[in-house]
Every structure is written in C-alpha cells, then in structure tokens.
C-alpha cells in the first residue's frame, strides 16, 4: 500500500533533487569547477557571508523575542494564553508578501511612522528604515518570531513546574531560579527554535529583494538570478547543493536535541 506513495516521492522529489546535485558537477563542464569557484571567487564568498550574517542576527533576535513571548504565554491563564496563541498564529498565516509590503508602508520614506514623526516635529528628514539591511532584518525577524515561539512553547509547557517551586523552597531568588533551573531546562527548545529559524532564514528571497532596495543580496535571490537571467545553472545548482547539505547537517544536530516531529508541529 505504501509503495505507490514511495514512488511519488521518488519521482517528484528525490529525482529532481538528484538532478540538481548532478547539474552542480556537470554544468557547464564535468568536474568540481563550480565548487572550486567558492574558494577563488570573492563575490560568492561575500554573498554567502552576507547571508550567514543576516541569518545569525535574525535568529538571535527572533529567538530572544520568541522566548519572551513563549515565557509570558505559559505563565498566563488559559484564556489569555489562547488569545496570544491566536495572535501568533494569525501573523504566522499571513502571506510573506503582504507582510513585507506592509513594512514598506509603515516604515517607508512616506510611511506612517516617518510621516508621523515629521508631523510632530521629532525629525526633519525621513529615517531610512527600509531599502537597506536594517529593513531586511526587521522584515525577517518579524516573519520568524512565530517559528521561534512554537517550539519553545511546546518545550516550556512540558516542564515540571514543581522543580521551580522546589528551587525557591531551597532559598533561591527568582533570578537564580530562572538562570540556574528554568533556562537550562529550556535549552532543547532554544536549540530547536534556533536551528529551525536559521534554516528557514537561509532561504529568504522575497523580503531581502523588496526591503533591501537591491543592495542586500542573499543566496536564494542569487540562485534565482543565475537560473533565470545569466543561465549559470551549474553555479546555481552548486549553491543549492551547499544549502541542502548545510540544512541537512543542522537538522541532524537538531534531531539530537529534540524529536523533529515535535518541532514541526506533530504530537508532543
């Protein structure tokens, strides 16, 4: 009974991926030339570094904000908790395009915030919040926060709260209890949401393209240009392969800390 589905996966999923791997070593000529370019092309290295830098910053702030939100949620009564979860999920479900353009309207040159600040006389010239790296980071962090919240929430809900009471009973202050008992117990959640957010950030395309004003070039957009415009499919396939194995490696690390099914919303 499972066999036809396996065939579907093999045909529509594994075959194209294998094809990409294959392209990365045969286009434009057989050999490892595309991979060698990584070492002797400065621009490729810079694009990869930009991508990693943006993803690290995005991940740090998303997990920080996500942790705060999840922490607040588990300490609220059920009704407020449901309300907050609903709010997180609503932003989770809104299309990335809509959210990106909303930032443009809010923070743009003639946006709500700049116009407001000018109207009350705080600033004379609009502040450049978007069309630069700052804009990309704002858009990406905002998009990623729900992804950081959900694994942390799962983790925090499953903690045995009696341990915290025991800690206080033994004379620890609130801060001590948090830093020495609560925080260590949430490390699996932190690792899971960190890796999840980092992996998803790597593939960002729309947000940098729109909020970056053309000056923030990340791997995903570069791959798209190489496929659609410059026809350097070998380079594109090489970068895609690199990302694929990078992501698989990180998933492997994550699987050591947490059941993958729990992270991706399966049973707890």
């Amino acid at each position: 009974m499972i066999l036809p589905f396996l065939a579907v996966i093999a045909g529509f999923y594994i075959y194209p991926i294998a094809n990409v791997l294959w392209l990365s070593v045969v286009e434009p000529e057989p050999g490892l030339g595309n991979y060698a370019a990584l070492f002797d092309t400065e621009s490729l290295r810079r694009i990869i570094l930009t991508t990693i830098r943006i993803c690290v910053v995005t991940t740090f702030f998303s997990v920080l904000f996500g942790y705060t939100i999840a922490y607040a949620m588990v300490h609220m009564d059920q009704r407020k908790q449901n309300l907050m979860l609903a709010l997180v999920l609503v932003s989770f479900w809104i299309s990335i395009l809509v959210r990106t353009f909303s930032w443009l309207m809010l923070l743009g040159h003639n946006g709500l915030l700049n116009n407001g600040l000018q109207a009350i006389g705080v600033i004379n010239e609009p502040i450049a919040f978007v069309r630069n790296e700052l804009g990309v980071l704002i858009g990406m962090i905002h998009y990623m926060i729900p992804y950081a919240v959900l694994p942390l929430l799962v983790n925090m809900r499953n903690l045995d709260m009696r341990v915290m009471r025991a800690s206080q009973n033994l004379g620890a202050t609130g801060t001590q209890t948090f830093l020495r008992v609560y925080l260590p117990m949430t490390i699996p959640g932190i690792v899971a949401s960190t890796i999840l957010v980092f992996i998803l950030s790597l593939g960002f395309y729309v947000t940098p393209a729109i909020l970056g004003g053309g000056k923030v070039l990340m791997i995903a957009e570069y791959i798209s240009v190489q496929i659609l415009i410059t026809l350097k499919w070998g380079t594109a396939a090489m970068l895609a392969t690199l990302m694929l194995f990078g992501v698989l490696g990180m998933l492997y690390v994550m699987s050591r800390f947490m059941k993958l099914s729990a992270v991706f919303g399966g049973g707890r």
Binding site: R46, I47, G214, K215, Y222, V225, I229, T230, L231
Partner: peptide
C-alpha cells in the same frame, strides 16, 4: 556578455 555583466553589476551594488 550578459552573464558577466549582470554578475559584475550585482557584485558592485550588493
């Protein structure tokens, strides 16, 4: 030459 030109331009502006 579009491959060379586009990539050189992207490299310069990013």
């Amino acid at each position: 030459n579009s491959e060379k030109a586009v990539n050189a331009f992207l490299e310069a502006i990013s």
